[in-house]
Amino acid sequence: MPYETFEHTADLGLRVWADDIATVFVDAARGLFSMIVELDSVQPRESIELAIEGEVSDLLLFDWLNELLYHYEVQHLLLCRFEVTIGEQGLKATAGGEPIDAERHVLDHEVKAITYHGLKLERQGARWLAEVIVDI
């Protein structure tokens, strides 16, 4: 499992381990949408382009997840496939998914927000670890 949820009394925690930084961002995004919908029920029928400025830090991860949540909330777009490149300017990404179809999609949590509480992005030996708690 590239991502897992962990306990937080009123909310939900998301933990990601990955070998490279781009994969951390991809798996964190999939982890976020796995809280909202049964991911297997979503097809990458359309895509959006995203660019987020900033150096690699926990705040870049925060801004990335926050941006995805905004697109979901406003366009009702469920996202399941992510391609991420990270450079000196920040992050560029293509996110694929489709609008909510109440007939096919099994919706789950409403994620109110990404929080700063316990937010973590760090190298642990050869791997990267990210933790983020979302408000449910």
């Binding site: 937080h8 009123a10 929080t115 509480h117």
Partner: peptide, 9 residues
Amino acid sequence: IHWGYGFCI
């Protein structure tokens, strides 16, 4: 009260 983010709930 229970564990929140920042402030307790």
